[in-house]
Amino acid sequence: MNKILEAKFLAPDIKLFKIEAPKIATKRKPGQFIILRVHQDGERIPLTIADSDIKQGTITIIVQGIGNTTKHLNTLKAGDFIPDLVGPLGKPSHIENFGCAVSIGGGVGTAIAYPTAKALKEAGNYVISIIGGRSKEFVILEDEMSATSDECYPTTDDGSYGFHGFVTQKLQQLIDEGKKIDFVLAIGPIPMMEAVAKVTKPNNIKTVVSLNPIMVDGTGMCGGCRAIVGGKTQFVCVDGPEFDAHEVDFKVLTNRNKMYLTQEKTSLESHICKLEKMYDKEKTNG
């Protein structure tokens, strides 16, 4: 059981949680994740640790409510408990002084890019951050990213804030301007990560992406999170989650993430149904 100490929305459907987990807080390194369940019959879902506070004994996770579990999670408040939480899992990010490092976060991916960007900065890199969102309200952690970056560029698809366009267009612009980039970290939706890989490959820029496939145990047992990297099967939970973007088979990754689309819809409908019933009951009970 882990207690939620703080919970606040950063954007529509995107919520930040500070959760009591003192041991994980001391042990975790950038790039690692946790797996949690929200109730007895809950699903195990992986979430990257965005930050930790050793003194407070907390870890921070940032969640976008998309499926049954994440939507349920986003109804939780400070004082509520998470029944099962395990971590840190996965290999930490490889951090070194590359020179100029660009960290790219798309949507909630910014939350995952943030701890690694911070570590890259601490390792002496010149850090440029590009943080994208559909519109202004979906650009998250701008203050935090700015604080750990030498340059920080928010981008929006609709032009409502910052650079008008995709994160890849901003990256291309930097390359075209002659910026010498030694390393790119890209975390976000799969199409975004694939697009970043396509921009950096012809420029021979080492690029790392963090994969978020479907997992069950997350400890190297079930094999569900397998991905093809460099033509070989890799297990994201123990071999990753970060991989060389130019080696990842994005087509397989995209397909495998669609495996349960129909079931996820059913699950979500039944979840919403349950919530409505709860709400009705509360109303009747006055």
């Binding site: 019959d41 809950g42 699903e43 579990t69 069950v216 495996m259 079931q263 059913t266 699950s267 039944s270």
Partner: peptide, 12 residues
Amino acid sequence: YKFPETDTPMFD
């Protein structure tokens, strides 16, 4: 096997 009573799906 109890899905959607439980949350974890599997291929039907």
